[in-house]
Amino acid sequence: MRRKARTASKAENRPRFWGRHAVAAALQNPERTVAKIWVTREAAGSFEFGRDVPVTYADAADLGRLVPRDAPHQGIVAEVERLPDIWLADILDGASERRPLLVLDQVTDPHNVGAILRSAAAFDAIGIVTQDRHAPPESGALAKAASGALETVPWVRVVNLSRALDEIAEAGFWRVGLTGEAEMALGEALGPPRVALVLGAEGEGMRHNTELHCDALARLPISDRVESLNVSNAAAIALYAATVA
């Protein structure tokens, strides 16, 4: 897969990942450079560290000072380089007919994006597409929520989401935007096998211009006992619906 060139990041800009799933996945990803590892001797036996990865043994209390307060580090912390950027065309070219694509319109909460990545991995999505400036950066919280999926699900960051949606349509995808105000239920909106599911930000939903770049608008048929679902829950349900349609 071709990737955009990225200038070398400075050490102070490197994210720190914690937790066994997030760190193990980072170590197994050939695209990821792991710059440094801190680990307890008890946890170290569960990992295979490359010879070129500096490893420092530390107590659990010392690891706690390397991560946000009360972060569940599970005995290991890794400092990593951010993944190289991916071109949108690379994930569209040759994509399987039945694999969905996710497009996120200004979803900024790292826990939600991490959970969406995890669902995308579970339902074999092609990848996720976000704006570059209105999406969270790679972080320990996001990687922890993704439970390893940050390393396996392609994440494309674009400058202009409307142009990206045009490119997605040109690649043969049926673009379905999820909004609670739509008259049509999601099951009715799903038709062509290549589907791109578009979800908006927490609270605000999709922007009007994003809606205009969708082929159909649909809602999830939820009970009136709740106003809406969390965007990560909505993404998981929509992915399942698209997979079994």
Rank of each mutant, 00 (worst) to 15 (best):
E12C: 13
V231I: 12
A24D: 10
V103R: 01
S139L: 07
E188M: 12
H111R: 13
P54M: 06
Q74K: 14
E42T: 10
E181C: 00
T179A: 02
E204S: 15
R32G: 00
E79G: 01
G50W: 04
G177N: 01
A95D: 13
R6D: 04
A145S: 15
V103I: 12
A169F: 06
R99G: 00
H111Q: 13
I237Q: 06
R51G: 13
H208V: 06
A189Y: 06
A143Q: 04
R3N: 10
E202V: 10
A121K: 14
F17E: 02
T152A: 14
E42Q: 13
A24L: 08
T130M: 10
E12I: 15
L165V: 14
Q106Y: 01
E188R: 14
A11M: 04
F47Q: 09
A78I: 08
P221A: 14
S46C: 02
P110C: 05
C214N: 08
S119T: 12
P68N: 04
G19A: 10
N29V: 07
I126T: 09
A35E: 07
I222G: 07
A235G: 06
R133W: 14
V34H: 10
R14E: 00
A78H: 08
T243F: 07
S46Q: 13
G148A: 05
C214Y: 05
E204C: 08
C214Q: 07
I128V: 15
G75D: 09
E183P: 00
I222S: 08
A89Q: 09
A122H: 11
A189M: 07
F49Y: 02
S96K: 13
E183T: 12
S147N: 05
A8R: 15
S223G: 11
E31T: 07
D109K: 12
G94Y: 09
D105M: 04
V34I: 12
V53Y: 05
V23E: 07
S9D: 09
E211D: 04
R51I: 05
G191P: 00
A145E: 01
L239S: 03
A44P: 03
H73W: 06
P154E: 01
H134C: 13
E204M: 14
P84M: 02
A141F: 02
D93A: 15
P72W: 08
L142W: 01
S46I: 06
A24S: 15
A44C: 12
M1I: 12
A145L: 03
P30N: 11
L92C: 10
D52W: 07
A122W: 00
L161A: 02
A182K: 06
V34Y: 01
V244D: 07
L229S: 08
A43F: 10
A164M: 05
Q28I: 00
V153P: 02
L229R: 13
P137N: 12
R99F: 02
R69L: 11
L27Y: 07
W174G: 01
S147H: 03
G205K: 03
I76C: 06
Y240S: 08
A182S: 04
R20L: 03
N112P: 02
A44Y: 07
V129H: 11
V153M: 11
I222W: 04
R194D: 04
P137I: 04
P136W: 06
